[in-house]
Every structure is written in structure tokens, then in C-alpha cells.
Nucleic acid binder design. Structure first.
Lengths: 111, 111
DNA sequence: CTCCTGAATTAGTTGACACTAAATTAGTCT
DNA sequence: AGACTAATTTAGTGTCAACTAATTCAGGAG
């Protein structure tokens, strides 16, 4: 199945880099974090609630993503506001939405 | 950075499923395997050469992807020919190519 | 049948991942 | 100063991922 597609060949040389990028996203909590950040910047504590994670665990996820340049933090008094720093994140979120949020899913959501 | 985008909200409910899917792809070897399969079906031993993996390790990667329905195997005598079974794989490969194989990368490849 | 080959499976090891708990840093407020 | 709060860092733990080595399975050839 899925007819031959030579166009993909170029990707082989970038497989390592692409896999590294995907590793960052291949986690439900981090995906939730990025979904929220795609809607606008927010604080660490709000992210904790959304993802149902302890502050420490959240901070570790954010540190990992900061190191990879996916997100960035902006200090504001006691709080730190995070936002998406790598546009590729937004791109892949849209792609995932197109593949995992079908019309049927959307209807279920409204039911 | 990266202006607010409420469209992504729907994805939050599917984050677990999407993360599970990404976990399968978040590995250089499996990405190489899928790249090759996107160009047409092939045998296990050829995949071993391409990904520089032992036959056992390859078989374990393929088993994992078979279980998740990403690929499927067709027996032909002694050999097993694998191909992509889940069209979402092709979709994401194209997306990755668009993000990791820029025009600059393409030129470097030719240099 | 025996031998061989391609593939799959099993057992065991190593390292990475994701958390908790505790300590630390930095900023605010009285 | 001291107390409080948001966030980060460090240490330790349990689980899972990805390999190697050895075994097993299935098909083809002598």
C-alpha cells in the first residue's frame, strides 16, 4: 500500500535531526504544553494545572525544551511566562491536528 | 513569538494518541526505515543495510511498528517484504521533509 | 532427511526518561 | 531583616527503549 514516493529520499540524510526534534514532542505532557503555548504565552503554574504536573516536573520539561530552543521564558516578577520559540513546533502541531482531529472527532467533541 | 493560534485547541484532547504516534517515529532508525519504505516495499535484509542495524534489532523495530499498524509484512519465500500500512506515516514524512530539508540543505547535498 | 538462509523471538544489559522529594534561587511584601 | 511565593535545580527511583547474543521458526536446496 501507499504508492512509491521518491520525494522522501532527501529526508534520510536529516533523519537524525528530525528524530531528535520528534523526541521532544513524543510526550503527552509536552504536547499539551505546546498546544497551550500555541494559543499564547502563559505562566509555569498555569501549565502545571493544564498538564496535571508538579511544578518540579513541569520545570524539567520546560528546561528540556528550552535547551532545544523549542520554547523560551520571559521573567516577570515572580513568574516566568513561556512561549513557543521554534516555529517548527507550530507547524507540526497543525499537521498533527489535521491527522488526529478529524471531522468525526470534532463532532464528538460537541456531543 | 509565534502569534496566538486558537485553532490548536482541539488537539489537546488527542494529545495522548498523538504522542503515542510520535513515539514510534522519534527514532533515527525507524525514520530511516519509513523513508525507505515510502519509496516502495523492500526486504528486511535491505533495511538492515540501510539503517546499519543487526537483523535482530531490525526485526524488533519492525515488530513494534507492525503492532502499531504503521507497516505490514508480506511473506515471499524466505523473505518478508515490508511496506507502509498507515498513510499518516507518509503525511508526516512529507511534513518533516518540508521542515528539515530546506533549499539550503538541498544545495549542500549537491556540493 | 539434513543443511542453510531470512526472519522472528527471547533473555539479559545498558542507558535514557519521567517522575518525587528536598534543597536552592530569585523576587515580593511587611 | 524575615516570611512567603514562583520557579529551578539536584539527587534518587522506577520504568521503558534499544541494543547484543543466543535460540527458534519457516521455507528452499542438496
Amino acid at each position: 500500500m501507499t504508492s512509491p514516493d521518491p520525494q522522501i529520499q532527501d529526508l534520510q540524510s536529516q533523519a537524525g535531526e528530525a528524530a531528535g526534534f520528534l523526541k521532544q514532542l513524543a510526550n503527552e505532557k509536552r504536547l499539551l504544553i505546546l498546544c497551550r503555548l500555541a494559543m499564547g504565552e502563559t505562566t509555569v503554574s498555569e501549565l502545571c494545572e493544564i498538564a496535571d504536573l508538579s511544578q518540579s516536573a513541569m520545570s524539567q520539561h520546560l528546561a528540556k525544551m528550552r535547551t532545544e530552543g523549542l520554547v523560551s521564558g520571559r521573567k516577570d516578577g515572580l513568574q516566568v511566562h513561556y512561549s513557543i520559540a521554534d516555529p517548527r513546533c507550530v507547524g507540526i502541531l497543525h499537521h498533527l491536528k489535521s491527522q488526529f482531529c478529524t471531522a468525526a472527532d470534532a463532532l464528538e467533541g460537541k456531543a
